[in-house]
Design a binder for these strands. Sequence first.
DNA 1: TACCCTATCTATAACGG
DNA 2: TCCGTTATAGATAGGGT
Lengths: 177, 177
Amino acid sequence: MGKNKIKHELISHEPNRRVTFKKRKASLFRKLTEITTLCGIIACAVVYDTSDSKMDAWPSPQEAFYVLENFKKLPEQRRGQFMMDQKAFLKKNISRLNGQLERARFKNQALDAELLLIEYLEGKHLSDSSRLGSLLALEDQLAKKISFITNRIEFMEVLEPNEVDAEINSDEMGDQG
Amino acid sequence: MGKNKIKHELISHEPNRRVTFKKRKASLFRKLTEITTLCGIIACAVVYDTSDSKMDAWPSPQEAFYVLENFKKLPEQRRGQFMMDQKAFLKKNISRLNGQLERARFKNQALDAELLLIEYLEGKHLSDSSRLGSLLALEDQLAKKISFITNRIEFMEVLEPNEVDAEINSDEMGDQG
DNA sequence: TACCCTATCTATAACGG
DNA sequence: TCCGTTATAGATAGGGT
């Protein structure tokens, strides 16, 4: 689409590639907005520019993560026809991922998760989850949980990065609600 | 695109909605193929049709999951670029978040999303305490947490279409020309 | 339900500032 | 690099088979 048709291959001219990436990513996300609204479905996407380790996701990093988690769980919940036959394949991947995770620092992941939570609460909850009128009853409980998490975040904020690691490692969220 | 422009809202006519979903999902995936090739980036997407619990992903369920896992690990790998910015961003938002929450700015639309995240975090932390011995174990633990959340989502599905529409319409959608 | 067709609407490659 | 504009390629809603 454009004045000239381009080949389906890596755009060699980097400036152009960057521009194209930006434009297409925006369009991709717009398409996600459209399809979810028009079709009443849930979707998410993640794009990862390996050249500069920049990630972006839709509708938000958290929701994307959530959807994927849900995806992971689908088979056991619905006996989803889709993942069933790929279960074995997944297992292999999981063990492979596990190897990577083993070497990873889980504490940082935890910090990240909480940071993401806040970010999420701040900016994305208006977009997708507009149908849960019936959850009003959980407002109180939710407030407590959010408050707790928020406090955790605030506390972490005043710690030095190194200390945060240690802190998070010994942290336990438990049930606050 | 198409002979008639359609409004950015749930397509009420179900047959049409199904057709549109199928078409757009295909286009979405095609776009993912294009952007990854043209721009040399990694991407994934998951589409979840809650009405029949059918999931689909690109480029594959496994790869989509893998990308998301990488996404989770990103912060610890590139703190300087991602995490640090987020933390700064966070600080400002925390107070604002509290303000919003305190003000009972709890709209229906936000409740489930927040709940989902919080529940998720709880699940994640539980997993943390067990050191994430393996992702398989994590999967089981997460499943329980997510199961609850999923029930909420499913509950939404049984709401009357009209109600759902109303909810959705009250949301800020931006005009898709 | 799934394709196929095509009138239209949309996305975007190239450019210019 | 970032917008705004323009010419084209691409996506797709509605309809027919």
